[in-house]
Simulated scan of single mutants.
Amino acid sequence: MSRWGAAAAVAALVGALLTLGAPAEAAVPTTIPLKVTNNSGRGEPVYVYNLGTLLTTGQQGWADENGTFHAWPAGGNPPTPAPDASITGPAAGQSKTIRMPKFSGRIYFSYGQKLVFRLTTGGLVQPAVQNPTDPNRSILFNWSEYTLNDSGLWLNSTQVDMFSAPYAVGVQRADGSVGTTGHLKSGGYNGVFNTLRSQPGGWAGLIQTRSDGTVLRALSPGYGLETGALPASVLNDYINRVWQKYTTTTLTVTPFTDQPNTRYFGRVSGNVMNFTNSSGAVVTSFQKPDASSVFGCHKLLDAPNDLVRGPISRTLCAGFNRSTLLVNPNQPDTTTANFYRDAVTNHYARAIHAQMADGKAYAFAFDDVGNQESLVHDGNPQQAYLTLDPLS
């Protein structure tokens, strides 16, 4: 069964952690409107899906266009077809408003064809287009991720799993103002693919194209490793240089912007980077990571939901993906001019951020370190927005 994207977990975690114990600015209603606008210029029909976990009960299911929740029926082994959860989206140049319930989930949209969802005994099978046999592989689609709870809305655009059909998200606040993020620069969609095509080392292999020549998406580099598009050694040179530097230099991590005195100090000994606190006690250690651990911010860079290892790992992950660990021994480095400057870096993330109108994106799981993520949030949301942009 395919997993929820890493950014879904991040969005849900952000929603839970930032609001834990905090009073809501106002009572958030059971559902809020989501205005879907089709500015894609494409003539195919659009299908919209609102899938997720109902926060009040923990049940998984989908919401119809009125925001009414429907639990998934029991699945099977092999997986059985899921009920048709599609909502007919707006035609080109049109808008349609649906309702969002208190979910932690995804808003999918597809062009021309409905997505194929199946159910196993463990729940919903998400599209996994890194798999050549996935039935959704030839469909042009994408998704946004959100958490709506009693403390507000967190809604983001995401490229953690793939870069595909462009869109932006937004939220209207109680004062009538609207915050948006996720729009590409003019020509930015093609610009991302052109950057990957021109980058040696296998990065062009991340791009998936349909038999009719339509460019569908670029897979994230983690999936590029899985599919063999990128070599397992793609980050070895940078990782080796980082490990060598911090054999004789101390890496200082200050993971919380509101706690400048909470610092951890990393030094490498052999294959291990040990972190100590201000008292000199070792608080956590990391084995030398590989490219998969870096791109996915998992495995050897696992980030548990705690107050020590998780925050340090998030910081390391961001530093490795943005290649800032050699230019600054004080992390996180939030100076965007330092990002992606090394020849060995996450060129997928580099390409995406370079083409975003506001520079913000969720190009890897902890791209929110230093507030670089494409996220809108409001504690008293009046309306949410999903805008489908041109593929140009």
Rank of each mutant, 00 (worst) to 15 (best):
P311W: 07
F339L: 03
V129E: 11
T209I: 14
V192I: 12
E226P: 00
R322T: 14
S198I: 01
S157Y: 08
N136Q: 00
T121F: 00
T324N: 06
A24T: 12
G58M: 08
A365T: 15
A351R: 05
G15M: 08
T121Q: 14
A165G: 01
A218Y: 09
S269L: 06
G58Y: 04
Q208P: 04
L388T: 01
F109K: 02
D150M: 01
G205R: 15
P231H: 04
G222Y: 03
G379M: 11
W203Y: 15
G202L: 12
K35T: 15
G228N: 11
A82R: 02
M356G: 06
N240M: 02
Q244C: 00
Q172V: 09
K245S: 10
V36A: 10
T180M: 13
A27C: 03
A7C: 11
K185W: 00
T195V: 07
D342T: 08
V160G: 01
V129G: 03
G41H: 01
A318V: 02
A92M: 01
V272K: 11
R118W: 00
L13D: 15
A24I: 07
T56L: 13
I352L: 02
N346R: 11
F366W: 14
T252A: 04
A384H: 05
S293W: 05
T30R: 14
T387D: 10
N66R: 13
Q382V: 15
T315G: 10
L251H: 05
E145M: 08
I98S: 03
D64C: 12
V178I: 15
P329H: 07
I87C: 03
G228Y: 12
S374D: 14
V272W: 12
S233R: 13
G176S: 06
R42Q: 14
P329E: 12
A8N: 14
D342G: 09
N240Y: 03
P381T: 09
V28F: 13
S323E: 10
V283P: 11
G21E: 13
V10Y: 06
Q244F: 07
N156S: 10
T80K: 02
A26M: 06
P45F: 01
R341P: 08
N66Y: 08
Q60V: 07
V283R: 09
Y348C: 06
A74K: 13
N236D: 15
D175R: 05
T88S: 15
Y49N: 07
R197S: 08
W143T: 00
A357F: 05
S279R: 14
